[in-house]
Amino acid sequence: MTLLIEEKIEPSPPERSRRRAPKDARAPKPPKPPKPPRRVPRPRKASRPLTPMQATLRMVSALLAILLLGMTLYLMVFSRLTHVIAQDRLNDQLREQLSEGTAPVSEGTFEDVLLQDGAPVAQLRIPQIGVDETVAEGTTSGVLMSGPGHRRDTMLPGQFGTSVVMGRAAAFGGPFGRLQELQPGDKISVVTGQGEHVYEVIGVRYAGDPAPAPITFGEGRLVLVTARGPAFLPSGALRVDAELVSDVQAPGTRATTHAGLPKAAQELQGDASHLWALVFALQALVLVEIGAVWTYRNIGARQTWIVFLPVGLLASLAAADQLTRLLPNLL
């Protein structure tokens, strides 16, 4: 009887690396364990049902928060875009009218119709402070959203008499934000339907400061007006007086008198004539919020965000646009 002993000989490490097992003989890989979460998830808190008072309070707070967010976004970001788009449009209109010789030189159009608020009347250039803006007719809050505005009861720039142009200091591009940097002797150029007119700055003054001597026969003066104080917190009006140093032009007829100038067109006044639009915008915002709550409860959170974030943003921007008209026009 022979005893066969099979001795298992372990290959040395270099030998093991040289010999490779055939592909078929490789053992199947065990399934990978699931990836652990990046963080240990917190247990969900059971939410208590809200009382009707708490639910109403939450809804009102959310509405106010959306409105404030929309207002901030509108004043800081979108108002700039609005101003750029409006200036582009006004500049095109004015160039076209100037080339056709139909640019207004009075309060009426070429067809003898009273100029509408927002119609372009002049191009204002102040190189020292980087101003190159198309001036529109009217000085209400809505008109000044598009750029500087010409006060209706005063002459057009370049003409005999005093011309008043108002502009915003901070919102909607703040075209007159650097007006305070102007010094006596700085030049201002204005192009109207009567040609290019050059003014020289007399000085800067605050409302209530002594004004320069009244103009005499055959002279022209330009008064630029904006808000002073911290941005978005106006503490008063700032005026820059400039005298016409180029040839004086004939004054055009003005239908609006100082007594007939609406309060909304005077400096640092808001415009409440579009209050109805604000009411509609706020109603739309409330409807959007109700729709969002309903969708969240009945359909799902993801769908609510996808649909109601842009809609809510649009509604809040529309409300902010109307609210801005109530704020001082030189803001």
Binding site: G101, G108, G252, T253
Partner: peptide, 14 residues
């Protein structure tokens, strides 16, 4: 009568 070519005649101005 043309606005750019002269004074506008809208209103009773001189």
């Amino acid at each position: 009568g043309g606005a750019a070519r002269g004074s506008s005649s809208s209103g009773p101005g001189p």
